[in-house]
């Protein structure tokens, strides 16, 4: 419409072009301003983590480091103390990976299967059950801490990594089921019927026809679940013990349990280390994330 206006009124084109450039400039100023605002903390974290403690004390918060040192990173990785143990974040990052990878895989797989059933194998009471499962998405997790502790005790999984995998799988199911169900309802029912006549059963249809179709929604679910599980603190702090804590809990301990001088550079390096995997997942799979979120609306 803007083009049409310009073409039909050539006499006013100079003034409208000037106005357009002014608007554009304003837009860029605003956007760059917001981007800087958002990037500022990251900038401070990065620069602080590369400074020595002396420099932090004497220099300005936003200044670039004079002498770049990776000493704080080394400490954060393998030397920082979480309470009485001084092994850095390394073992806890490993714990988090051992929790997140199976947790993501299991909750995604079960979510896919649940979604497949809810979308394509309607049974009596399916809608009620689905509504209940959705309810699980919105439950504040503090409510389930005590019952879950009891269940983990009964299962003999209290304080263990498998216990945390179990907790994350169970509480991930609400969202993963929702994702897959909404994706699979867009697939025509006739596909299942055709496969039934071809002789395929429940699992065969799932493995051969539905799973290969699901890449976009698998990416969405994996990113979502990985972020949730990796960033979780509440379950991690409640259901772990020394040696099985995830990185979020360890980070908290490093920052809060230091006595004497606060090592800001180590804290910053540790925080970046703890956040790195989720950042990596977004960078690698981010474009599929957007695509997958909108994929339900487009024919597969």
């Amino acid at each position: 419409m803007t083009d049409a206006t310009i073409h039909s009124r050539p006499s006013r084109s100079t003034s409208s072009r000037a106005g357009r450039i002014a608007l554009r400039t304003l837009l860029y100023v605003f956007l760059i301003g917001f981007a800087l605002f958002y990037l500022m903390p990251l900038f401070v974290m990065l620069t602080t983590s590369l400074k020595s403690l002396d420099e932090i004390r004497t220099g300005s918060l936003v200044a670039l480091p004079r002498d770049v040192t990776f000493e704080a990173w080394r400490t954060a990785w393998s030397g920082a103390c979480t309470g009485i143990r001084c092994e850095g974040l390394k073992p806890y990052l490993l714990n988090s990976l051992m929790i997140a990878i199976p947790g993501v895989a299991l909750s995604t797989l079960f979510g896919a299967m649940n979604g497949y059933v809810f979308a394509q194998w309607k049974f009596r009471g399916a809608n009620v059950l689905f509504a209940l499962l959705l309810f699980g998405c919105f439950i504040p997790f503090q409510v389930v801490l005590l019952p879950m502790a009891r269940v983990l005790g009964i299962l003999n999984l209290a304080g263990t990594i498998p216990g945390l995998i179990f907790v994350h799988t169970v509480y991930g199911l609400g969202f993963t089921t929702l994702f897959f169900r909404n994706y699979y309802v867009t697939i025509p029912m006739e596909l299942v019927r055709a496969a039934k006549i071809d002789g395929a059963g429940f699992f065969r249809i799932f493995w051969s026809i539905f799973l290969p179709l699901s890449l976009p929604i698998i990416v969405v679910t994996v990113i979502w679940q990985f972020t949730q599980i990796w960033n979780d603190f509440l379950f991690g702090v409640s259901f772990s013990q020394a040696g099985t804590q995830p990185v979020t809990v360890a980070l908290n301990n490093i920052v809060n349990s230091t006595t004497g001088v606060k090592e800001y550079n180590v804290d910053m390096a540790a925080a970046i280390l703890a956040a790195l995997p989720t950042l990596l997942v977004y960078v690698v799979a981010g474009k599929y994330f957007i695509r997958g979120l909108t994929a339900g609306s487009v024919k597969g």
Binding site: P188, E190, R193, A194, K196, I197, G199, S208, I209
Partner: peptide
């Protein structure tokens, strides 16, 4: 069950398996 009725069916939406090639679609059964 449908698979044991000795029938074959052609659907309105064709219901071809989207991730399989034409050859795989035909030989899937």
């Amino acid at each position: 069950s449908p698979k044991d009725r000795d029938i074959a069916m052609v659907f309105q939406s064709y219901a071809l398996y989207p991730t399989m090639t034409v050859a795989k679609n035909i030989t899937f059964g």
